[in-house]
Amino acid sequence: MPSSVLRSLFAQKVFANDALLTKLDGWADAHPSEHLACLRLLNHALLVDQVFKAHLTGASPAVATVSAPEQPTLEALRSEVAAIDRWYEDYVASLPGASLDEVVAFTFTDGDRGSMTRDEILHHVVLHSTYHRGNVGQILRSLGMAPSRDTLTSFLHMREPERRAV
């Protein structure tokens, strides 16, 4: 079984994605171009998650690009992100620990070949989405909005408040 840290990172990803997607609700009309930029960033992260899911399972990726020309609605994006996040949480929870070092060969969407261990892929998925949530946070700040508190420390202390008592 993967480390508790890897499982915590994927649980935090669920928490952070949900909080940020909730934060995007209700202001699209006031700032349409910024809202669209946020959807593009988060949809890109979703597409990357889907591509690496395919690599992990040995399937052909369902998408040919990680930069979709059209963006889903916020509701559709929220649903798809929640589904892929649940898949990754279940995958990490059920993956035998010894499988983490297994090398997975694949083809990137640009046609280049590559290989990574399952552990590297899983860490890439977590870090990649964190990066793009940060991009969205910067857009929110530029509009005078506070981004959601989505750091690992916030998540761990919310999930286990007794950690603050030490």
Results as ranks from 00 to 15, higher is better:
Asn135Thr: 14
His44Lys: 14
Phe15Leu: 08
Ala11Thr: 02
Ala30Ile: 02
Glu75Gln: 14
Gly137Pro: 03
Ser79Val: 10
Arg78Phe: 08
Asp85Met: 00
His124Gly: 03
Tyr91His: 02
Asp25Ile: 10
Ala165Ser: 13
His123Met: 08
Pro69Asp: 04
Glu162Trp: 11
Thr73Val: 05
Phe106Asp: 11
Glu102Tyr: 01
Ala93Ser: 14
Leu36Ala: 13
Ser148Trp: 05
Ala82Leu: 03
Gln138Ser: 09
Thr117Pro: 02
Ala16Gly: 03
Leu39Cys: 02
Ser67His: 15
Glu162Asp: 15
Ala68Asn: 14
Arg159Lys: 09
Pro61Ile: 02
Pro69Leu: 03
Val63Ser: 03
His123Cys: 02
Gly97Gln: 05
Ala68His: 11
Gly114Leu: 12
Pro61Phe: 04
Gly137Thr: 06
Glu160Pro: 12
Gly97Ala: 06
Leu140Met: 10
Lys13Ala: 00
Ser3Ile: 10
Asp101Met: 15
Val104Phe: 13
Ala68Met: 14
Ala30Ser: 06
Val51Arg: 07
Phe106Lys: 13
Phe15Trp: 15
Arg141Ala: 07
Ile84Pro: 02
Ser154Ala: 13
Asp85Lys: 00
Ile84Phe: 09
Ala54Gly: 02
Val51Ser: 08
Leu39Ala: 01
Leu127Asn: 10
Met145His: 11
Leu56Gly: 08
Gly97Asn: 06
Pro161Thr: 11
Leu74His: 03
Glu34Phe: 08
Pro72Asn: 15
Glu120Asn: 14
Ile84Asp: 03
Tyr88Met: 01
His44Val: 13
Ala30Arg: 06
Leu74Asn: 01
Val81Met: 01
Ser154Tyr: 15
Asn17Gln: 07
Ser79Lys: 10
Ile121Glu: 00
Ser99Gln: 13
Met1Gly: 08
Ala62Cys: 06
His31Glu: 11
Glu80Cys: 07
Val66Lys: 01
Asn43Ser: 13
Thr22Glu: 08
Thr73Met: 05
Ser99Gly: 08
Thr153Glu: 15
Ser99Leu: 13
Asp85Val: 01
Ala28Asp: 01
Tyr91Thr: 01
Thr57Asn: 04
Thr65Asn: 14
Glu160Lys: 15
Pro72Gly: 12
Lys13Glu: 00
Ala64Met: 11
Ala19Asn: 09
